[in-house]
Lab assay of single mutants.
Amino acid sequence: TYTYKLTDEEASRRAEDEWRNRGYDVRVRNNNGTWEVEVR
């Protein structure tokens, strides 16, 4: 499981799409203004 911490929502969406396209399960959540993109 990888977790990315990003401050930019758009960057988190791009990361989400990119990993999803590669067949990974992705979750995005906002934690106090930081976007966490979790990849498994």
Rank of each mutant, 00 (worst) to 15 (best):
T3F: 11
W35I: 04
Y4S: 02
T7L: 14
N30P: 07
V26W: 00
E16T: 10
N32K: 08
R14V: 10
E18H: 14
S12H: 03
E36G: 00
L6V: 15
R27G: 05
K5N: 11
W35Q: 00
D8R: 02
A11Y: 05
V26M: 00
R20A: 05
W19K: 00
N21Y: 07
L6R: 02
Y2H: 11
D8L: 04
R14G: 05
Y2K: 10
T1F: 13
W35A: 01
N31F: 11
V28L: 06
R13S: 05
S12Y: 07
W19Y: 06
G23K: 02
Y2E: 06
Y2S: 05
T1D: 07
S12D: 02
W35L: 03
R22D: 03
A11P: 03
Y24G: 01
E18R: 10
T7I: 13
R22H: 06
A15M: 15
R14H: 09
N32G: 11
R13D: 03
D17F: 14
V26A: 04
V37D: 00
N31M: 10
N30E: 13
W19F: 08
Y24Q: 02
R20K: 10
V37R: 00
R29I: 14
Y4T: 03
R27S: 13
Y4A: 03
S12T: 12
T1I: 13
E9L: 09
G23T: 00
G23P: 01
R20N: 04
T7S: 13
K5T: 14
E38D: 06
E16K: 06
K5L: 14
N21F: 08
R14I: 11
T34G: 06
E18W: 15
R20Y: 04
T3E: 04
T1M: 10
Y24W: 06
R22A: 09
V37H: 04
Y4H: 04
V28N: 02
V39C: 12
T1Y: 14
Y2P: 04
T7Y: 15
R13I: 07
W19S: 01
Y24C: 09
R40C: 13
G23V: 00
T3W: 09
E36Y: 14
E36V: 12
R22E: 04
N21I: 09
T34S: 10
V26F: 02
E10P: 08
D8Q: 04
T3H: 07
E36D: 04
N31Q: 08
G33M: 03
N32T: 03
G23W: 02
Y24M: 04
S12I: 07
R29H: 12
N21K: 14
V39R: 02
V28Q: 02
R27V: 15
E9K: 07
D8Y: 04
K5H: 13
Y24P: 01
R20W: 03
R29D: 04
V39D: 00
E38Q: 09
E36L: 12
R13A: 06
D17V: 15
V39G: 00
E9F: 10
L6Y: 15
L6G: 07
T34K: 07
V26G: 00
V37W: 01
V39H: 02
V37Q: 00
N32F: 06
T7K: 14
N21Q: 13
R40N: 07
V39S: 00
R20I: 07
T1H: 11
A15I: 15
T7E: 14
T3G: 03
V28M: 05
R40M: 11
N32A: 08
G23C: 09
S12Q: 03
R13P: 01
E18I: 13
R29E: 06
D17P: 01
K5E: 10
S12K: 05
R20H: 05
Y4I: 12
D25R: 09
R22K: 11
R29P: 02
T1S: 13
N32C: 15
R14Q: 10
R13T: 05
R27F: 13
V28I: 11
R40G: 07
V26T: 05
R40I: 12
K5D: 07
T34W: 12
T7W: 13
D25W: 12
R20T: 07
D25N: 10
V28G: 02
E38V: 13
S12W: 07
V26N: 00
E38I: 14
E36I: 14
E38K: 05
N21E: 10
V37S: 00
E10A: 13
V39I: 11
N30Y: 15
R20E: 03
N31E: 08
R13E: 04
R13Q: 08
R22Q: 07
R29W: 12
W19A: 04
W35Y: 07
G33R: 02
E9H: 06
W19M: 05
R40Q: 08
N32H: 08
D25G: 05
R13Y: 06
Y24N: 01
N30F: 15
Y4C: 09
V26L: 00
N31W: 08
Y24E: 01
T3P: 03
E18M: 15
D25Q: 13
D17T: 15
N21H: 10
E9T: 04
V28K: 03
V26E: 00
Y24L: 04
G23D: 01
A15Q: 06
T7Q: 14
D17Y: 14
N31Y: 11
R29N: 09
E16D: 03
Y2Q: 08
D8E: 06
A15K: 11
D25T: 12
R13V: 06
V26K: 00
G23Q: 02
V37K: 00
Y24S: 01
E38M: 10
T3N: 05
D8W: 04
L6S: 09
W19G: 01
E38H: 08
T7P: 15
E38N: 05
D8P: 01
Y4N: 02
